[in-house]
Computed example of a mutant assay.
Amino acid sequence: MAVSIISRTIKEGFRKLNHGNIKKSPKILLGFMIMPVRNISCLEVSKNMSLLSNEKKNATVADLKLDQPQENPLVVLLAWMMANKKHTYKYADIWIQKGFDVLTVNVNPWQFLWPTKGTQVVAADILKFLEQNTFYSPLMLHGFSVGGYLWGEVMVQMAHNMDRYQHILDKFVGQIWDSAADVTEIHKGVPPAVFPRNKMMANALGKYIIYHLKTFDKVATRHYIRSSQMFHTTLVHAPALFLLSKTDTIGTESSNQRVKENWESMGIQVEWKIFEKSPHVGHFRKYPKEYVAQLHKFLDTIDLQKEKQKQEGETNKDRIKVKM
């Protein structure tokens, strides 16, 4: 099949996705078990971000700023490709039951393939939300698959102005990475997310992505590489938990191991959980009790109340300095 035909077919698929015709497109159901969740309040922050809570938010949002302060700590949940809202709710519910609000972030395939007009815009919105709503503290990260790449883009922007964003970095008390996928595996990870039931089209998209990487260096490839480098030399030094599987060919054990070794060499505390046979971002679905227990165990190592008091104390010190 010629590259031009593949490209037109894929672009048409992305056009339908971007116009909201998800119901007419096959969807991949990855990463969780079918189980009821409690009522979750959802506030649409932007096209790509939603704020989830255990109670209805009376707050409204303008220019990514909530008009009412929130008292709960916040999890930034960076979803996998093509994640449906009701699917991410399964994970959000784990955090909500622990007293967190959850900012879910999704990107679509078009935004991923054209980062300068896609994922980098979303990354800027994540930063703007955190900067505009400084009352959220402490902060946690929970990223899936390409969410690692998206967070790398966030850190690239932070690195350009550390004086401005250091106070945000200081609020992170923990990070969890589920099936984190490196740039070297994107030609394997994106196709099944877009075409889960059409192997021929998935293979065609995989070939197109390889062509895309070779052809569009300035607007795509160099940004993937820079994000990957930033993820490996992270700005977030909070304790980390990696969740992965021996059978995952996308978020591989070897690529995650390299990240683990880099982070440990920087003095970051890294916990490591390898499941036996779960698919990519499918650990919760395959091992629900073990997955939740691992998250709770990790949280137990972080004294959130102590961290909150510590961060509030540092904020008060800064205010005193300003007055003096």
Rank of each mutant, 00 (worst) to 15 (best):
E12W: 08
D63G: 08
M201V: 09
Q269D: 12
T252Y: 06
L213T: 04
N203G: 09
T134R: 09
Q175V: 05
E290N: 12
I250P: 04
W272N: 10
C42F: 09
S179T: 05
D67L: 06
D182A: 14
L113D: 14
P69T: 14
N72E: 11
A220W: 03
R15M: 14
Y136S: 05
V102L: 13
C42L: 06
V105L: 09
M158N: 05
E314I: 11
W151F: 13
A123F: 08
N58T: 01
K16M: 07
Y165N: 09
M201F: 10
F275N: 07
E276C: 02
H142M: 10
T215G: 02
L244D: 02
E153R: 13
I28C: 03
I10Y: 01
N262I: 09
Y211T: 13
T134A: 10
P69A: 09
D318F: 06
P239A: 15
A238F: 03
H87V: 15
K128A: 01
S228E: 11
F135R: 04
V194P: 00
F112R: 06
D303P: 14
G267A: 05
L304D: 06
F112Y: 06
P26D: 10
K128F: 01
I268D: 01
H232R: 13
S265N: 05
K171G: 00
V76M: 04
T104E: 13
I10E: 03
P36R: 09
G174Q: 09
S137N: 03
Q175H: 05
Y165P: 01
A202P: 01
G99R: 06
L169G: 10
V236P: 07
Q257H: 15
Y287K: 10
I210K: 06
